[in-house]
Amino acid sequence: MSQTDSKPAATPRWGMIIDLNACTGCSACAVACRAENNIAIAGAKEAAYNGTLQWMRIERTWTGSGRNFRVENRPVNCQQCDAAPCEPVCPVLATYTNAEGISVQVYNRCVGTRYCGLNCPYQGRFFNWFDYAWPSPMEVQLNPDVSRRTRGIMEKCSFCIQRILAAERQAELEKRALRERDIQPACAQSCPAEALRFGDLNNPGGAVGAAWDSSGLEVLLPEVGTRPKVRYARRVTPPDSRLAAAPTPTAEVEA
């Protein structure tokens, strides 16, 4: 992974590229996210009733049959939309896009109308149906930088805003510019295939900023017009050996 150290622009705009070619569906990102962000474990009974909370999840889709059978593993988190449908519908302004482009959820302000959850076409928002418990010794691994959520409020992927803030504070203390490589959300950090890349979209030399407009990238549900800041590197199917004459598709994913 070639990361340049060029200086990011004054106000960063955070984005993520998820490479579907590299993703193996191992779910390490989901586990790391859970550990980093104190996401509650609802239990087996709730899991069977769609009651789990997963800021980062792997959605598997199966297509075709026989030789054409394909499995696609798609990590889905909050897509951090520029035109987020979840935001204008909240009656108490508990969610908004902050200066760095992250759609943030204000836990203290949320009253739990759940309108945002319905209006998210990606279903990237999760509701605290109960006060969840961390049975001993699990409470020991709770991250002190992230608040535990109470019952009755919404939560969602924050791009590990606590890590961003820590890096920004550190840069300020050391009186230097923020270095993009200092920031890695838990999911990107833990991905063994390096399928998730996180960076500043205002930094044209950065890993994500440089690749952001390449044609191999797609967004989920472009027709809804949400302008997400998570883009997927399209899955490129390897050519079938029996169709040797067919032109080889070009992979434009890696910049």
């Binding site: 935001e87 204008p88 908004y96 896009t97 482009g101 759609s103």
Partner: peptide, 16 residues
Amino acid sequence: GYRLHTGGMPLISPLP
């Protein structure tokens, strides 16, 4: 009185 970051959306929109 309480200016919000709206991510490029207008702060005051006439229709609502």
